[in-house]
Amino acid sequence: MQTAFPRSTYRRRVEAVLARMEEAGLDVLVTTAPDNVNYLCGYDAIGYLWYQGLILSPRLPEPVFVIRHIEESAVEELSAVARARYYDIAREAPTAAVADVLQGAGLSGARIGIEMQSTWISPAQYLALREALPQGRFIDATTLVAEIRLIKTPEEVDCQRKAAQMADRAMQAALEALRPGLTETELTGLVQLELGRMGSEYPAIPPLVVFGRRTSMVHAMANRVPLAQGDLVMIEVAGCYHRYHAVTMRTAVLGEPPPRVHAAAEALSEAFAAAIGAVQPGRPVGAPDVACDAVLVRHDLARRRAHRIGYSLGLAYPPTWLEAMILDGGDPHRFAPNMSFTMEPNLAFGDEGWGLKLGDTILCTESGAERLSTRPTGLTVVA
Rank of each mutant, 00 (worst) to 15 (best):
C41Y: 00
Y10M: 04
M21G: 00
S8D: 13
L60N: 00
T31V: 08
V28R: 13
R7I: 05
L26P: 09
V66K: 08
P63N: 05
S73Y: 14
M21C: 02
N38T: 08
D27M: 04
A45D: 15
H69N: 15
L18A: 07
L56T: 01
F65G: 11
G42R: 05
T9P: 10
A45L: 11
M21S: 01
P34S: 01
E15Y: 01
T32W: 04
T31M: 01
E62W: 12
R12V: 07
R68L: 10
E72P: 09
I70H: 03
V17K: 05
L40V: 01
E72L: 14
R11S: 07
V37L: 11
E72C: 06
P6L: 12
E62Y: 13
D35Y: 03
R20M: 04
E15S: 08
F65M: 13
M21E: 01
E22R: 14
V14E: 15
D44P: 04
P63I: 02
L56G: 02
E72D: 14
D44R: 03
Y39G: 03
L26F: 09
T9A: 14
M21P: 01
Y10H: 04
Y39C: 03
I46L: 12
L26V: 06
P61G: 09
S73P: 12
I46V: 07
G25K: 05
E62N: 11
H69K: 15
W50L: 09
D35R: 14
A33Y: 06
P34F: 02
E72Q: 15
Y10L: 03
Y51H: 15
W50C: 02
R13M: 10
C41W: 00
L49Y: 14
R20P: 04
R59K: 15
R12D: 13
R20K: 13
A45C: 14
F65R: 11
L40G: 01
A16W: 06
L40T: 01
E23V: 03
L29V: 02
N38D: 13
D44E: 04
P6I: 09
W50T: 05
H69G: 14
A33P: 04
R12H: 13
E72T: 11
I67K: 06
Y51P: 14
W50G: 04
F5S: 03
R68P: 10
L56W: 05
G25T: 02
A45H: 15
D44A: 00
M21H: 01
M21W: 02
A33Q: 09
P63D: 05
L29H: 05
L49C: 12
E62L: 05
G47Q: 10
